[in-house]
Design a protein around this nucleic acid. Structure first.
Lengths: 345, 345
DNA sequence: CTAAATGATGATACCGGTTACATCCCATAG
DNA sequence: CTATGGGATGTAACCGGTATCATCATTTAG
């Protein structure tokens, strides 16, 4: 591998001149520049950017902690990050953490060991652990699923408002027994969406029924399973609101397997608006999130921090949109309901 | 940021001793080691791994060129890579190239500029361009969609055999007008799957009809559009074989919109077996590919090259599996066919 | 005509580790 | 008692750039 000294020697100049000819061409005379460029060409010189990064102390790498890249929503987020990072001259180091704190910590070390300049965490957990001194300035941005602490800059949706919006939509359609299929237990995201759901119920004077809450883990399978549980209830729901589209698609399948029609007998709603949501049968009513924008905003925020343009930790809230499709419809009339109730009993 | 010299000073030893105490503890006496570790702890020393990488000339980074991470199949491949890379002590630098050669080349430069040790390309294109001297030893592995050249190690499916297998399945069900929804034109992958399709037709004595070939780009939308085109034919197909599941799901939706039943009136088959395939209505018959294994195999191969364990460029062929679900069934009887023909005319 | 300013280039310290080699000390063999 | 050997540690070169400062030539101002 040819280095800058080889170029300097061939061009008959010093290494400093070669460096200048390439980095600040204005400081070098035209004919020297020509000699240098010819020498660069001849030896096929490619600067060792590892050396540059080492010298400068800036890696221009960003670590991204993703629970799972094999998730359509996160894939879109990453896509947005990738785009923004490329524009700013940064590269992404992608870490598939499976939500494992050990794995997250090991990747967070890349920041501490100067292998990356900053980190983006897509899960509500601080991968740096409980460092004693002020970590307020740790170069981390928290996106999508965010921590409650105000410490880090965050990019999030108003999950509570979004869930309330969807629930209100269902209530407006006449539903009063609305089930919710939740995400992982401990997540603030799930807690917020649940709160929004309850807000809407309370506002409409509908009693909260714990039986209508069903655990899930954002997978198709868990949606399928949740639907089975809900349909087996003595008094099953007339609408099922899922915390993501994958689970909703799982629910849709299970509901149809049981012979019920969507939305005539039961309405189903999702969250995220992944591309498959529009290709469901029936197409899925859902909450659209600007996934790519989550990614790009997170990257831009992080770069702002790294370049010292940010002193306070901002909290960016991105807009959501209620997307009405055919999977939600008017609640079945009471007659139908009691019929179904009789069948089930 | 504290460095090794600070530790050495505090511990009252030389930097070499600190380095040894951390890297080759056996060479250092017990009490010196204790002093060093105490000093490390006290100053909160974290080695600058950028310096190590620079010094060693090994970055332990691998660039991955992905046409689009927002693709369920590729997301699984990446997931497999991530896993294998972590085990081998490598990090992935993910590049979302959108199939753009310029973007690919710019990321390939990371290898040439010592920012990464090797590269994995998931598309059939040489991102290094036509370098003159032997690039037989360029540290690149080609996976999924592979180049025809034998130059690089590859990990692939026998796409021709897989397509033939699926086509034969359809023929065995009595279908004789089988459409194919293709991927991007220039791709060897598409060419191979087409060849397999033709192999099966030829073997069964069915004439190849160009009208039954439909272009696509692996998206849900393109499948939807392709189905519209095919259904409008004077003599429409009784089965549609798509080169990936997304397109098949798009096809399914369009077919149902036109009032046809799947599989009674028309069979649909996909390729890849993404998770959504099993949650379609009806669940999709498809070819399962070991996506994660593509990723892990590619990484392991690349690491083998980097560590000099490989001289020849191997070609790994991973197994596929025909997954039979409910979207394919016996071809409609001729009566039904001619009826439909009359309706369309 | 001399002094100062400007422009072009060279010499070299530096970033933070690793490691080859040198040095020193002590134990054991002769 | 001395020579040999090995264990423990120190010294400093090295990786490949960048950037500071010095140097030298040339031009411009006084």
């Amino acid at each position: 591998m040819s280095n800058i000294r080889a170029v300097a020697e061939l061009a008959g100049v010093s290494v400093a001149t070669v460096s200048r000819a390439l980095q600040q061409p204005d400081l070098v005379s035209a004919k020297t520049k020509a000699k240098v460029l010819a020498a660069v060409e001849e030896v096929g010189y490619k600067p060792n950017l590892m050396a540059v990064k080492f010298r400068s102390g800036k890696t221009h790498n960003l670590v991204v902690l993703v629970p799972t890249v094999a998730n359509v929503f996160f894939a879109r987020v990453i896509s947005g990050m990738q785009q923004a990072a490329a524009e700013k001259g940064y590269s992404l180091l992608l870490a598939n953490t499976q939500g494992d704190q050990e794995i997250e910590s090991s990747y967070a070390k890349m920041v501490q060991t100067s292998q990356a300049d900053g980190l983006i965490q897509l899960r509500a957990h601080n991968p740096f652990g409980e460092v004693t001194d002020d970590q307020s300035m740790l170069p981390m941005v928290n996106a999508c699923e965010v921590l409650d602490q105000q410490r880090f800059p965050t990019v999030m949706l108003d999950n509570r408002a979004a869930a309330r919006c969807m629930t209100e939509h269902l209530i407006k359609l006449g539903h009063r027994r609305i089930a919710m299929v939740k995400g992982p237990q401990r997540s603030p995201l799930t807690r917020d969406r649940l709160a929004g759901y309850q807000d809407a119920l309370t506002a409409a004077g509908i009693a909260f029924d714990e039986q209508l809450l069903c655990p899930g883990n954002f997978s198709l399978q868990s949606g399928h399973k949740a639907a089975a549980t809900l349909l087996a209830l003595p008094h099953p729901p007339t609408a099922i609101f899922c915390e993501n589209d994958e689970m909703a698609i799982g629910v849709v399948q299970r509901v149809k397997q049981s012979g019920l029609r969507i939305p005539e007998d039961l309405s189903v709603a999702g969250f995220d608006d992944i591309s498959f949501a529009a290709y469901c049968d029936p197409p899925l009513t859902t909450i659209a999130q600007p996934a790519e924008e989550f990614g790009s905003t997170a990257v831009n925020l992080l770069v702002d921090i790294l370049q010292g343009r940010l002193t306070k930790a901002p909290k960016v809230i991105l807009p959501f949109e209620l997307v009405l499709r055919a999977s939600t419809g008017p609640a079945p009339v009471t007659v139908a309901l009691s019929q179904k109730g009789e069948q089930d009993v």
